[in-house]
Write a protein that binds this DNA or RNA. Sequence first.
DNA 1: AATGAATGAGCATTCATTCAT
DNA 2: AATGAATGAATGCTCATTCAT
Lengths: 195, 195, 195, 195
Amino acid sequence: MDLKSRIAEAAERVLLTNGLAKTTTKEIAKAAGCSEGSLYNHFKSKEDLFLHVLRNQLKNLMAALTSLQSLAGTSPVRDNLKRVALAALGDFNASMSLICSIFSDPNILYRHREGFTERNEGPHRANEAVEAYLLKEKQLGRIGDRVDARAAADLLLGSCFQHAFQLNFLGREESLEEQAQFADRVLDLLSPGLE
Amino acid sequence: MDLKSRIAEAAERVLLTNGLAKTTTKEIAKAAGCSEGSLYNHFKSKEDLFLHVLRNQLKNLMAALTSLQSLAGTSPVRDNLKRVALAALGDFNASMSLICSIFSDPNILYRHREGFTERNEGPHRANEAVEAYLLKEKQLGRIGDRVDARAAADLLLGSCFQHAFQLNFLGREESLEEQAQFADRVLDLLSPGLE
Amino acid sequence: MDLKSRIAEAAERVLLTNGLAKTTTKEIAKAAGCSEGSLYNHFKSKEDLFLHVLRNQLKNLMAALTSLQSLAGTSPVRDNLKRVALAALGDFNASMSLICSIFSDPNILYRHREGFTERNEGPHRANEAVEAYLLKEKQLGRIGDRVDARAAADLLLGSCFQHAFQLNFLGREESLEEQAQFADRVLDLLSPGLE
Amino acid sequence: MDLKSRIAEAAERVLLTNGLAKTTTKEIAKAAGCSEGSLYNHFKSKEDLFLHVLRNQLKNLMAALTSLQSLAGTSPVRDNLKRVALAALGDFNASMSLICSIFSDPNILYRHREGFTERNEGPHRANEAVEAYLLKEKQLGRIGDRVDARAAADLLLGSCFQHAFQLNFLGREESLEEQAQFADRVLDLLSPGLE
DNA sequence: AATGAATGAGCATTCATTCAT
DNA sequence: AATGAATGAATGCTCATTCAT
């Protein structure tokens, strides 16, 4: 693996462990097994390195959302949504402290936001992706034609997001099984509204 | 107003504007119109001051949750839930950057968590409060006897939480009317599941 | 006891416990059971308070030296010297850290020195006092007429001084009996030179 | 010379001039011709730097004490002791304010003590070294077989120590000749006791 | 005389960044 | 590209002193 990737992974590790405020370039360098100077051969600044790491979060969720689009009309809606919910729970959980750290520095927040705006990406796109999927299912008649697709997406992903937030806050870990239970309970309640 | 309160309010203002990472004691003092030394006559450290400010967030939501308990059986369930949703949207919106900043420093996270554990409080209690309310309504027969009260609470507050998060992330403001629309759409979709 | 004395005694206690560098006016006030402001009603500054405390050290030794002058020709020379040695060991031991602290701040050193010069006092006077006593004994024929009285004084008090210094450095306490043994051993060796 | 040594020497200079209490990192850096930050590339803290300087005091005396052991039985005892006395007077004089400063901060005192305990060194070892030398001379029959070697060492070094202390206190300098006279007078008085 | 909140200059220390090698 | 010593601005915090009450 090249040094740039090693640095990025080391940074991610340190950031998740120590939090943005307590993450120093010295420690990143140590974790990456290189010198502090090397960081600056591959990233313009610590902030750039952080933004680079940030952009690589939520990969599983993004993949799940991409594949979700092509699942419309195939496996049961509920199964599809559950798959997304599980990916969301997993990724939100793993990345929550990184994601939240953007609010501790307006400069980072601004740059992160602009970066997403440019590429027309961003975490809020997740909700749009679920919405888009549900619209397709609506056209296919697999969910009620009065269903507010966006509201459904917001409820599903919102509950997963807050759930992950609270687990992180409480310092608790959750097994895959517990995650599945959470998804099921939420989907049980949501399902009547989708018909 | 006494200096301690002035400092706390100034700190809140600066923290919301600059983010935790860019908030200095010098700037808090300036905003409070006092010397840096005075900060330390009233708070043991910058961290303590931050935790103090943090604990005073979400006051409206907490008040709404308290009054919610006594609303069981009175006004329509949906109205009661909407009231909570609006309080949540408002408070989450106003406090999101502060709340999220706790993840940028594990020490702060730890102390904030312990503080809540001691007082048996915390943001996760919000969901429990809504759950408790819904359980009462279930006993009163105003919602279906199969309803998963906790899942309903998680969906409602979770969607509000993530909505506020995304607004903050996008740097957008939302009118009260828009907030009400969001609440309505979410509750529309949730309602069938409550019957 | 009046407040001024209470403050002085509290300061002495704190200084001996914490060392000059770690002694704060806040702690002195706490130890004296008064406010920090009161310190300044009785002493012009913390430095003045320290100098006041400093001047009240070695009281026993000074008393012993005063009474020593009138002992010339009475009890055996060796007994008189031993009495002085014991007073020196006791006082040096109790005051060493205070005495040494004057070297940590040239301003204090200067003022302490000037204070003594004015009043024609000072710790070096101790050696002169023993010298004066020995000169009397020499005139009385109780010690050899070739004896270098000042050298004898320097040897006796010097060994006591360094002994106390080293005990303090090592953090050891010494019983009165051990102190007496030290004095005896030193005087045994010194005695042949006095004849 | 490397920066670490330059910093240490600069620190020693500033400490001797200003006293521990008035020695700031800013001034040390200035005296060393480097930035304050550089201090921390070579020493963990100001305290560590001080302890480093402290451990390099009394080098001449230590050398004299080492060579003293091999002088037993060679040059006259009195000459050997005088050599030690002169080294002691010189080093005590030059280092007194540094040595005494350890009593102004219990933390420094503790760490300095522990450092010596570990390495089985320390200023009190000086007296033991002289004692050891005298014991050899006793075995060689060059001093009386009843002589209390430790008491002799304590008298000799103690008087030198206090002499240096008082010179520093009085702010006086002493020529090499005056130092030799002091040593001679003290040894004159001590000599009868050694036979 | 006694208070103690307010002060603000001063301090040790940190850390992202640079640059000569 | 890799290094790591050097930097110095910036930070949180301390504490002797003041002064209105």
